[in-house]
Structure formats: C-alpha cells, structure tokens
Design a binder for these strands. Structure first.
Length: 495
RNA sequence: GGUUCCAUCGUCUAGGGGUUAGGACGGGAGAUUCUCAGUCUCUAAACAGGGGUUCGAUUCCCCUUGGAACUACCA
C-alpha cells in the first residue's frame, strides 16, 4: 500500500522549529518510501487564525525546499485541503455520529462550563472536565433548549468503562482507561466548526492517510481518536509519535536547569527569525533533522536529497531532544564555507544594503571581500558588524598602530614602506598572494616579523583592533579610501 | 492532583548481555596565521538508583527517583 502522510499545521502563528521538524520527518518518510506527502491546513480555530501565518507556512516550506504532493495551491484528488472549506463534511459526519448514538448535543453555556471548572479546581476533584450534563437529555428537554435558541455543540459519548489501546510504531502499545479519557470532548463547536479531534480523524480517513506522525504531545489524545475511528467503523492508521523538541533554560537566580517544550523563552523558534538572522536553509534542515533522529554514529552532514533517501522510522529516538543553538551555529558556519563565493556574495548583499554599507553596484567589491571573511562568519548577518568599518572610520591611536615589540619610529618606517608596496601592487593589479609575498619580503628586508607589516596596515585601514584581513579590507574600501586612511595613520605616527 | 510517555558525557547521539562504552557540538590544552575567526592535534566528560533474570548486565524485567506532555467550544 502506498504510504500517505501529512503535515497538518494550524495557521495560528509562525512556523516554528518543532512544527518544521514534524513536517520534515513526514516529508522524508514519504519520499524514502515512494509515498505521498500531503499538506493540510487546519484552520478551524477562527479566533486565532491569521493570514500571515498561512503565508508564513508556505514561504517556510518553500525556503526549506519542501514540496507537497497534495494540498493547498497544488490541489489533489482529496481536496479541498483547507479545513474551513470542508465544513459541511464535518457537520455531516458529526450528525452521523449523533444518529448512531455515539455522540450527542450539548447545550451547556460557556459560563456553566467555566463555573464547573472552577469548582473542580477548588475541590481538587480527581475528576476534571465536562460532567456529561447533557449526555442523557430526553427529547423533550432537547426540544425545549432548542426552542430557547441555544446553539448546541456535539460531544462524543466516550465509554465510561473498559479501556482503549493503540499501537505506536516507536512506543509500542499505549493503553488508557476509558474513564480517564477526556470526558465527552466537543467534536463540533457551536459555530459549526469542528474541533481538531473531529476534523483530524475525518480528514485523515478521507485523505487515505496511512501513517500519522506527530509530536508526542498528542499521545494523550490517541485513544480518543481511536475511539472515533471505531465509532465510524474506519481502519485505524499507523501511529508514530515523534519525540518533542525541548528548550533548555537556566534560572538566573538559582542556577537550576529546566527543560520544557521549546518556546520563545528559549530564543528564536520561528523559522522566519532564523532566516532573518542569516541561517542557511540547508543548515537548519540538516540540524533539525538530527534532533530525534540519527543515521549512524558518524554521519552528520545530510543534504535534503540524501535525507529523502535515507530517512527511516527505526532510527527515530523515543526520548525528547533539546534544541542546541550552538550546534546549529556550527552547522551554519560549515555550510557557509561550502557555499561558493558568488552565492555567498548574493546572500550577503541584502544585509549590507540594509545597513547602508554597500549598494548593488558594489557587488564586485563584495565578491573580492568574501574569500577573506568566508570562514569568519557563522551567520549571514555577521557581515554587518564585520563591514561597519567601511562607513565608520575612527582614526587609530598611536598605541593601536604599534605592534608588540616595536616602537613608534619603527612602525612609521614600516607603514610608509608598506604603503609604497601596497600602492604599487594595487596599481599593477597584483593578486592577494602576490601582495602577500611582497609584504613578507618587505618584513624580511626591514628585519621585523610579518605582524610588523600586516597589523599596522590592517589597523590603519579599519581603525579596529579586530577586523577582517587587510587585503580584503583594501579591496572593499577601494584604492582611494584605502590610501586616504593609510595616510591618516602615517600622520598619527608622525605626530 | 489525575493520566500517559521518557531516561547513555553539559547537549545531540551510536551501541547493545561479555566493548578501552564510539562520534559530534560545547569546554580545556597545544599548533598554525598579520588581529579575530577558521583549520589541525590532544584532552576532560555518560550508561539515575535499587532489586531481579543470567556464568555475566549499561543493554532484558520490576520498583523507586527524576524529567516531560496532556488534562479547552486551541491545535
């Protein structure tokens, strides 16, 4: 049978690491098994819905290079794939359940439910949740309530005895006493929209989903969903609950370490944030895939294409995993260095433009600059502080310009000589290597260390103690500005 | 509180009845280079505890402990 899996987010916020990890695992599983990856939008919460979230979903998957076989935009044989466009379907099936005596209308007001909850809390009642008040309403009572114009919800009649078991590919059998299952949860809201529980079961069935891969936070509602499949008389799909992605936080006062479901508290969680900070899609995809999954003890670099071949359920971990920002950074640096200079320059330019450091026509300069800084940045955005010297030049002090074990007079002599060499090299169009050689020769001639020629030059050009290599700076600044700055520094040393 | 799930270095993990328990990030040390990075080398660091089963358990079983998730007319 063909594998059919789905990613079914709700557009109520930006796509975050946890969600994307679920999407990735589903997608890879489908690809690795020659199956179909379906995208379904679960927009049944109209209070929290936002169009921005929906657009973010599309742009995030697009950025990561994840294409869905069926879903919004691309369509498919089981559409529509947006739940708000399937309302009649849910209503029909919910009624069917009522007709079968497996669900019932409930007329309880939100206020009554709220009071019930409060009471249960106060009494520390072991039984929490709905009290099944409307479960056994007579026809007359129902008619009376209808007449009052109360819009009812439909609740599932959860058995009060026995237990329900479902099988999880990773976890094995999971059993829950029916009395412990959420007491008669709402299936159809009073606004006619389904809740997650109803919509998800109906759609997964209708769309022929074979494997449900979702985060472990859904385990508690597994038996509930099974009850619904059974009520409808439908085949139960395979379940595979994915380990949660956690965040780590250290209490600033006590120093205690806490773990919890990854959230904004822990740092950036939305893919959009990572993207804006200058993470590369291949780095994020690679790292995220490794939280809760591994291939073997050695391999850690995977392209999307490789994961599409090599991904397997058996290698998924059962324990939750902590999202390690540092390791992501490391991956990003690695992938940064794997990109071509041209690619990188293209990716870097928007940051520099935003910062008002370069313009589009400076692309050649940037291209000259990239090789020198490629291994110095871990995020694309790192380029901005690294280039700020172009715009802001603080004339360096005498102390800054003088390298260790040298004096002012010696430095002055060196810098003057360096200036001559640099000028000559730039004018004759020497390569960095040639310039390097000539300056090293100069150092020998002057009887000083390499640092004695390179450091004053670099600091003269940037006004910074820490900066990119001098040749890169020279090229980024251009001859005119470079000469001006070197002359500035020479004046400082002459004073 | 109730229910369910989980448990190998600080973190991500490999392994699995007999191993010097392997790798990666991060940490520490050193080398290299014009600063900073980067790169290379070396290094410290783990089977939560207690019972079984077994000739032998980190590995299988049970308990304890610890952690997490769920407990909405949210998903």
């Amino acid at each position: 049978m063909e594998v059919r899996v789905r990613y079914a987010p709700s557009p109520t916020g930006l796509q975050h690491i946890g969600g994307v990890r679920t999407a990735l695992f589903n997608y890879f599983f489908a690809r690795a098994n020659g199956g179909k990856f379906i995208l379904r939008v679960e927009d049944t919460d109209r209070e929290r819905y936002s169009d921005e979230s929906l657009q973010d979903l599309y742009s995030t998957l697009d950025w990561l290079g994840i294409k869905w076989d069926e879903g919004p935009v691309v369509g498919g044989p089981h559409g529509p794939y947006i739940q708000s466009e399937r309302l009649p379907l849910y209503q029909e099936y919910a009624k069917k359940l009522v007709d079968m005596g497996k669900a019932y209308y409930c007329y309880c007001t939100p206020e009554r439910l709220e009071n019930l909850r409060k009471k249960q809390e106060e009494e520390k009642s072991p039984q929490v949740g709905y009290d099944r008040h409307c479960r056994n309403l007579t026809e007359e009572e129902r008619a009376e309530l209808e007449k009052q114009g109360i819009k009812p919800v439909i609740r599932l009649k959860v058995p009060t005895e026995g237990s329900t078991t479902f099988h999880d590919i990773l976890m094995g059998d999971i059993t829950r006493e029916n009395k412990d299952i959420s007491p008669d949860p709402v299936l159809l809201k009073s606004d006619g929209f389904p809740t997650y529980h109803l919509a998800n079961v109906i759609d997964d069935h209708l769309m022929g989903i074979t494997h449900i891969m979702r985060a472990q936070e859904w385990i508690p509602s597994g038996p509930l969903h099974v009850l619904m499949y059974e009520a409808f008389g439908w085949e139960i799909p395979q379940y595979c609950h994915l380990p949660m992605v956690m965040g780590k936080e250290t209490d600033p006062v006590t120093g205690e370490v806490h773990f919890a479901k990854l959230s904004k508290r822990h740092g950036s969680t939305s893919v959009r944030d990572f993207r804006a900070k200058g993470y590369l899609p291949e780095a994020l995809l690679n790292y995220v895939s490794l939280v809760g999954w591994s291939y073997d003890s050695e391999t850690e670099f995977f392209t999307r294409e490789e994961l599409e071949k090599v991904f397997s359920l058996e290698k998924i971990n059962t324990a939750p995993g902590v999202f390690d920002y540092q390791k992501l950074d490391w991956f990003n640096g690695q992938y940064m260095r794997r990109r071509s200079n041209e690619d990188l320059a293209q990716l870097l330019m928007p940051y520099l433009k935003d910062a008002g450091i370069l313009k589009d026509e400076d692309m050649d300069k940037l291209l000259d600059f990239v090789p020198g800084i490629k291994e110095r940045i871990t995020l694309l955005s790192d380029i901005v502080p690294m280039c700020s010297f172009v715009r802001e030049y603080q004339v360096p002090s005498v102390e800054m310009l003088i390298p260790k074990k040298m004096d002012q007079a010696g430095t002055l002599t060196a810098l003057k000589a360096v200036y001559e060499v640099v000028k000559q090299c730039m004018e004759s169009g020497d390569s960095d290597d040639q310039m390097q050689q000539k300056l090293c020769d100069l150092a020998v001639k002057l009887g000083i260390k390499n640092a004695g020629v390179f450091n004053p030059l670099r600091i003269a050009l940037t006004g910074l103690q820490v900066s990119p290599p001098p040749f890169s700076c020279l090229r980024l600044l251009g001859c005119e500005e470079s000469y001006r700055r070197i002359e500035c520094a020479i004046k400082v040393l002459e004073a």
